[in-house]
Design a protein around this nucleic acid. Structure first.
Lengths: 236, 236
DNA sequence: TGCCGTGAAATTGCATGCAATCGGATCGGC
DNA sequence: GCCGATCCGATTGCATGCAATTTCACGGCA
C-alpha cells in the first residue's frame, strides 16, 4: 500500500494560514510591497494575531515576505537586480533537475512526463490565476520526479519568487510558459539526453526571463483578496 | 550625532533565539533527533514559550528542525538517503558559485580569496566547534563573493545541513575541509578557469562526502548546551 | 510656507493563561 | 505474562492582554 505514506498529519492553523498566504502572494493576488498587518490577517482568517504573526515569520524565512522589526510585514518587493539573481539560481537548480532526471530516466517517468505536457496543453487557458499557477506547475512536477525533496523545495521557492518577479517587471502573461518548449524538453529527457535537456531548459528560462519589461497594476484592498483564500483553507 | 548607525536593525528576541538555535544545531551541539520542548528553550534563553515557538517554526522552514503537530519539535534527523540528496544539491549550488565567481573575477576578489585560504591555514585547529564552523566558512565566503544573496542563502542552508549529515553518518572530523584542496580551487578561480574550478569543487565535495561512514555520540542535557548559546545572544 | 516638536492612535513584541491533545503509567481482562 | 482500555501529567495550540515602539496629525515657531 504505497498510497498514503505519512500524508495526513493534523495541520495547525498556523500552517494553513502560512500556506494560504503563500498562495495568495504567488498567485499575485497580493502585490509586492503591500503591507500585511497582523490584525488584518488574523481577522481575515478568523484567527488571532498570534497565528498571523507566526505565518509571516515563516514566510519571511522563505523570502516571500519582508519583516521589519517594529514596522511590520510586507510582501517581498525584490529589486530588478534581486530578480536577476533569483533567475540565475533558478537556472542552476533546474539544470540539476533535468540532469538528474535524464540520468535516472525510466519508462514510467517517461510516460508521466508525456501525460504532463498533454494535460498542460488542454488546461492551458482557463483563468488568469490558473494560467499563472500552471506556468510553474510543470517545472515543479519535473523537480518532484527527481525524487530529491530538497531540490523540490528549492525549485518550488525559486519558481514562486520568479513569478513574483515577473509580476513586477514582466509584461502581462510573461509568467506563462510556452507549451511547445516544454514538449521539446520532455523529448530530450525521455531520450535520456541530459546535456541537450539542460540546454533546452536554459533557453526556455531565458525566453521566460527575457520578457521582463514593464507592467504595473495594483490590486484592490487586501481583506477582500484574503477572504477568498480564507474560505479555501477552512478547517474541516 | 555619534555615529550610531541605524543600519543595525533592532533584532527581536525571536530572531536572536532563532539564530542561536541554528548555531547550536549546526555546531552539532544538539544531536539530530533530540527533542526541543518549547518550555525548556524559553527558559534557556530567558524568554517565554512564544519566542521559542516562533523560532522553532522558522527553523522548521529551513529544514533544520522537524515540527510534528501536537507532538513537538525535534532536531532534524535526516536519513542517509536524504543526506545524499542534500549533497547532490550542494554540489549543484557550489558549481554555480564557482562558475559565477570565475566569470566575474576581479583583482580585488582574487586578493580576498588569497587571504581567505591563508587565514584558514592559520586558524585551522583550535577547538572542535571552531573547526566545524571553519569548515563551512570558506564555502560560505565563496558564495558571499558572488554577490548573489539568494545563492548565498541556499549555500548557507545546504552547508549547514551537510555538516549535520556528516555529524550523523561521517566519522569524527569528517566535516573538516582539506585546506590544500581549497588552495587549488582558489588558484583555478583566480585564473578565471570556471570549468576547472567546478571540477575541483566537485572532487572536493566528493572527498568530503566520501568520508561518510559511521560515528555516533550523544551530547549531554540540552539545557546546559543552550545555556552557553544564551549568553552569546544576550541583548546588549 | 515650511520645519520640527509633541501627543495620541495604531501596531508590533512579548508574556501569560487556558483548553485540547499526546504519551505513559496504571490497571483489568484474557 | 501479555495486551488493551483508562486515566493523569506534561506539552502543545491558540487567544488575549499589556507595554513599547512607530506613525501620523496637529500646531507652534521661524
Amino acid at each position: 500500500m504505497p498510497a498514503t505514506r505519512k500524508a495526513l498529519r493534523p495541520r495547525t492553523r498556523t500552517e494553513k494560514v502560512h500556506a494560504a498566504l503563500r498562495r495568495a502572494i504567488l498567485e499575485q493576488r497580493l502585490d509586492p510591497g503591500v503591507r500585511l498587518p497582523e490584525d488584518m490577517i488574523g481577522e481575515s482568517f478568523g484567527t488571532s494575531r498570534t497565528i498571523a504573526r507566526e505565518a509571516l515569520g515563516r514566510l519571511a524565512v522563505e523570502g516571500l515576505v519582508e519583516l521589519i522589526p517594529n514596522r511590520g510585514a510586507f510582501v517581498a518587493n525584490p529589486s530588478l537586480d534581486e530578480g536577476r539573481e533569483i533567475f540565475v539560481v533558478r537556472k542552476g537548480l533546474e539544470r540539476m533537475v533535468v540532469l538528474q532526471l535524464a540520468a535516472r530516466m525510466t519508462p514510467e517517468i517517461a510516460r508521466t512526463l508525456q501525460s504532463l505536457v498533454e494535460n498542460e496543453a488542454i488546461l492551458a487557458s482557463r483563468s488568469e490565476a490558473e494560467a499563472i499557477r500552471l506556468a510553474g506547475e510543470f517545472h515543479l512536477r519535473l523537480a518532484a520526479l527527481t525524487g530529491n525533496s530538497l531540490l523540490l523545495r528549492y525549485v518550488t521557492e525559486v519558481v514562486s519568487r520568479c513569478s513574483l518577479v515577473l509580476a513586477m517587471y514582466g509584461r502581462p502573461h510573461s509568467a506563462d510558459c510556452a507549451v511547445n518548449e516544454h514538449l521539446l524538453l520532455v523529448a530530450a529527457l525521455t531520450a535520456g539526453d541530459g546535456d541537450r535537456a539542460a540546454g533546452l531548459m536554459d533557453e526556455h528560462l531565458d525566453s521566460v526571463a527575457g520578457r521582463a519589461l514593464i507592467g504595473q497594476r495594483p490590486n484592490g484592498d487586501i481583506q477582500s483578496v484574503l477572504a477568498s483564500f480564507a474560505n479555501r483553507s477552512d478547517l474541516a
